Simulated assay, not measured.
Amino acid sequence: MMRLFENIAELEGVTGQELGVSGWHRLEQSQIQAFADATLDRQWIHTDPERAAHGPFGATVAHGYLSLSMLPYLAGQVYRVQGAESVINYGLDKVRFPAPARAGSRIRDRLTLTSVTGTANGRQLKVLHRIELEGSEKPACIAETVSLLRI
């Protein structure tokens, strides 16, 4: 469910708290293949289901960077600040890929707002993303994003 903040002050008021959780998204082999084609990273563990079935994960797996690239889509389901002119990706502070996301698995994003800092160009938001992997205690990805929110 989308969490709508009326203004930046309301968002700042929940610093240190969970913002919410996205819906589930299934990582299909076709999406993994499209990512491999777009990035030219066609390693067999991502693109060859027959060979990958006998590999270390028992199936093809999504690229860690595919999971990471899903953050804007998944976070967009969780919250929005009214009146925001734009949200610009500024960078990442920490990224880890603790568990493989096999083709056909489902992921979702659990977000926690860790800080809001004023800048000359708007507010810098740091959000901790935990890409949960259905049926796994370990997440597929943990990342702290840095974004610039312009009002």
Rank of each mutant, 00 (worst) to 15 (best):
E132A: 05
A103M: 09
R108C: 15
F97K: 02
F97C: 12
D109E: 11
A140E: 12
S86R: 15
I142Q: 11
R96E: 10
G122Y: 10
G122E: 14
R96C: 09
V81P: 11
I88F: 02
T114V: 11
L113P: 07
E137P: 04
G135S: 00
T117Y: 05
S115F: 05
R102L: 11
Y90K: 05
Y79H: 14
S86P: 10
C141R: 04
V81W: 02
G122T: 11
A84W: 01
R110I: 12
C141W: 13
P98V: 02
E134W: 11
Q77D: 03
R123D: 10
R80Q: 15
A120N: 04
I107L: 13
G135W: 00
P98H: 00
N121I: 04
V87L: 10
G83I: 08
H129D: 13
G104D: 13
R106I: 08
G122R: 10
V81I: 15
Q77N: 08
L125W: 00
T114L: 07
E137I: 06
A84P: 04
Y90M: 07
F97D: 06
F97M: 09
I107R: 01
A140F: 05
K94Q: 11
V78T: 02
Y79V: 12
R130P: 08
K138V: 00
G118W: 01
R130K: 11
D109W: 10
R130D: 12
G104F: 13
G76N: 09
G118L: 14
G104N: 10
R130V: 15
T112E: 10
P100I: 13
Y79L: 13
E85Y: 00
E137C: 04
Q82G: 10
G135Y: 00
I131H: 06
A84K: 04
A99Q: 01
G83M: 08
Q124I: 00
P100T: 14
L74Q: 04
I107M: 06
V87G: 07
N89F: 15
A103G: 12
L74N: 04
Y90L: 01
A120I: 07
K94N: 09
Y90Q: 03
R106V: 02
S136T: 06
R80W: 14
G83T: 08
D93R: 08
L128H: 11
A84E: 05
